[in-house]
Each structure stands twice: as C-alpha cells, then as structure tokens.
Design a protein around this nucleic acid. Structure first.
Lengths: 235, 235
DNA sequence: ACCTGAACACCGTTCAAGT
DNA sequence: ACCTGAACACCGTTCAAGT
C-alpha cells in the first residue's frame, strides 16, 4: 500500500496532485531547482499556470511534496516497517542496516541532487522523520542506552544531510565519469599549489583527492561515527 | 591585517565592494535570504540598482562574498594561523581546539542563519577550505595516521554543515527564548502522539526534546565523532 | 468542482545616458 | 571611472471568467 501506482498515463488524464508532482520531479531532475517554473510545469501538463494552484498551495509545498515522494520511493521503499531489517534483503548487523539506509539516501541525492538542498530546509518534517526513526531503531539494537540514542541518531542524520548538501552543490560534472575525474584533478592541483604556510594540511591531502570515491568516503564517515557510538557506549 | 577596518561610515562615502557587502549582511541578518533584493540594497545605499553591478558581478557573488566575510570574521578571527592553537585563548588539547572551532561556526550560523544554507552550496570553496584546514591540523595533532586524516576532517566538517543547515531551516522562533521553548514543546507533543507502530523510536525520545539544548547536542555529536576518530586510530 | 489565461506585483540584470 | 534609473525578460501568485 505504500508503493506508488504506476499507470501508463496518457495525455487526456485529468490534472491531479500526483501528476503535478510527478511532472515537477521530472523537471527538477532534468533542469534543477532553477528550472522548475509554474509556466514550464503548466506547459508540460498542457494547462495554464493557475490550474496548478487548485491542487497545490504554492511552490514551497510542491517542492516539499516532491522531496517527500522521492525519499519515500527510494529510501524506505523496500523496508519491513516493524522489524529492524532495514538493509534491503535483510541486514546481518545494525551497523550494516545503518550503512545500507545511509547509502540509499546518498544514492537518492546523487540521482536527484535538488533533494540535497531541499532536505535541509524541511524543519524536522515528514521525510526526515522516517529516516530518523529508522536510524534510531538500529541505534537501539546496537545497545546504546536510552539517554544516548537521540544524540547518536541525530549525529548520523546530520552527517548524512551535510554530505547530501555538499553533493547537491557539487552537481556540475555529474553526467560523465570523465568530467568527474577532470574535476577532481583540477581541485587536487589547486590544493597542491596552496600556500604551504596557510594550508599545510590541505596541501598534504591534495593527492588523495585524485582517486577519491564519494561513496566510499561517505561510508568511511558513517563508520567513524558508528565507531564513536560503540566507544561511548562502552566508556 | 586580517581584521576588518571599522571606520564610522557616513552617508557620503563612495560606493565600494566593502560597503555593499556590509549592507547586504545587514539586510540578510534582518530579513533573511528572501529579503535581500537589489532594489532594497540600492535604496539602503542611496543609489540605483545598476550601480551595484559595477562592484559585484551579481547576486550569487554577493551572497558568496557575504558568507565568506562572516565566516572569516567570526570563525577564524582570533586564530594563530601557524600553530595548532585554534581554540581562542589557547586550547589544551586538539579535541578542545576542534570543539572550540566547531562551536564558533555553530554560533556564527546561529547569529546569521542564512550562511547555514549558503555554506552548503559553496563547492569546497574559500570559507569552507579554511575550516577544513584547521580541522585537519588538529586531526593530525590527534595522532591520526596520514591515510585517515582526510576522512576524519571531512566527517567533522560534513557533520557541522549538516547541523548548520538544519539550524538555518529551523530559524523561526529565533527571537525570544519563550518561542523556542514553545516550539520544542510543540514538536515534542507531536512526536509523542505518533503512531506507535510506525514511530516507536521517535515516540520514545519525544520527551527528551523538551529540555533540548542545541549547542549541547551539537557538541555531543562532535564528541561522538572524536571518539570514533580515536577508536579507529587505535584499532 | 475544476480549469483558463490575462493581469499584478515583483525579481535579477542590462544598458544608454549622464557626470 | 563610476553612477543613474528606465526598461527587459522573467518570476510566483491571483482572480474574474468560463465549463
């Protein structure tokens, strides 16, 4: 019942919230947040701009609903709500479940960079709440005492959001892998030529950037926080 | 030399990049990102909108420079560039130095919520690079081996940015402390009344929200990551 | 109930014209 | 070199009028 119905929609279907959001997501994916316009959206739906306002209160709501839809579809889609198995097929450990959930969010932001920006501005609302809930459950399974669970789950979520925001901002040479490599090489070269007195550390890690994998690095950060959670649980 | 000159500027001062950015920061602090308009800004500077374009390429640059200025002023202001002492008076441990730096950034975002949104979209550029550099130096002092330093510094930075983005989004009942308390109570009550089957964890931590201190919680997250860094260094 | 599309009040940016 | 301010091409949103 949580899965979205996928009818083969043809031209003459009446306007609906669902169709509007679907079209908006398409435009956002293709043209980014700046490309989503009520006029463009109306044209795509073969109506006037005013018609959209009957189904949606305005652009803010449209963006919020679009974000919630993508997150619901790609992140929580194949999850057994009741149990601790959030890792798709079935995670062996809570650590694996957290990694899997984080990675699904990471990939969703990668596929739809605009939600990276958008998620940050939903004030603890629906889509983030579900992620928070799932992270928190795994934290409990991990054996973190009651008093520390909120902090642990929040830290994980905030880290995920931070990376997501950065990834959304860096969505430039997204298309080809070559562009990506070229981009990393450029940044790496720039860092390597920084003033050694002002940026000794950044210079030192400049060459690590050349064979940098965002996903791997993202997971390494998750693991760091997971290590901190176990550590502080023991101490 | 890094400190900004604070002349008592009066009406007839000629237009300059510095004056424009200063006025823009004032408007952003008072009215948020939506309130900054070239017309409003021009009126404040007693000119036409066109004049601003001679000193600044456009709104994007203006926002970027404003963000960089605030970060430079409030975060790195009283720092001895060369040494590891980044904690203001002089930090006893690298952990303390990291906490102090993170806290300064947190407070800067609290005072100027718009930079929370803005920092996320600077693609690894100037203001963030300085923070990254300082974090990285402390990570080295912490004894993290070369291969793990990039990850450690990135994780800290991404967490800070994540919290910053959330704080920027939640800047509603910012003015009074009473509004803040009321807001937390409202969210707490909302969480407490969630469906127990769908949100068991969130319900369980709902009452922790009532006496929630953002700063304390933020630091707890930093400590969690720091614990993870020591842990993974040892293991 | 739902859609249409012109109109309103904005916005960032440009540019001829001034000094 | 620097400023002015009208004008351009947009934008989100509203609303009388249609069906």
């Amino acid at each position: 019942m949580a899965t979205r119905t996928r009818r083969a929609e043809r031209r003459e279907e009446p306007l609906s919230r669902e169709r509007i959001v679907e079209a908006a997501i398409g435009i956002l994916d293709a043209a980014g947040e700046g490309g989503l316009t009520f006029r463009v959206l109306a044209e795509r739906l073969a109506t006037g701009p005013g018609a959209i306002y009957w189904h949606v209160t305005g652009k803010d709501e449209l963006l919020a609903v679009a974000t919630a839809t993508v997150v619901a579809d790609t992140v929580i889609a194949d999850t057994v709500i009741g149990g601790p198995e959030v890792g798709g097929p079935a995670a062996a450990t809570p650590q694996e479940a957290i990694r899997a959930l984080a990675l699904r969010l990471f990939d969703a932001i990668d596929a739809h960079p605009w939600i990276g920006t958008q998620l940050a501005r939903s004030p603890g609302q629906s889509p983030l709440l579900r992620v928070f809930e799932h992270l928190g459950r795994q934290v409990r399974v991990l054996g973190v005492p009651q008093a520390g669970r909120f902090t642990a789950a929040s830290t994980l979520l905030n880290y995920i959001l931070g990376v997501g925001g950065q990834n959304a901002a860096n969505a430039h040479g997204q298309e080809s892998e070559a562009n990506r490599t070229e981009f990393l090489n450029t940044v790496s070269a720039a860092w390597a030529s920084l003033d050694p007195d002002e940026y000794p550390f950044t210079r030192d890690v400049a060459d690590q950037l050349r064979d940098h994998d965002d996903r791997v690095e993202f997971l390494a950060g998750i693991d760091l926080i997971l290590a901190g959670i176990s550590e502080s649980k023991a101490g």
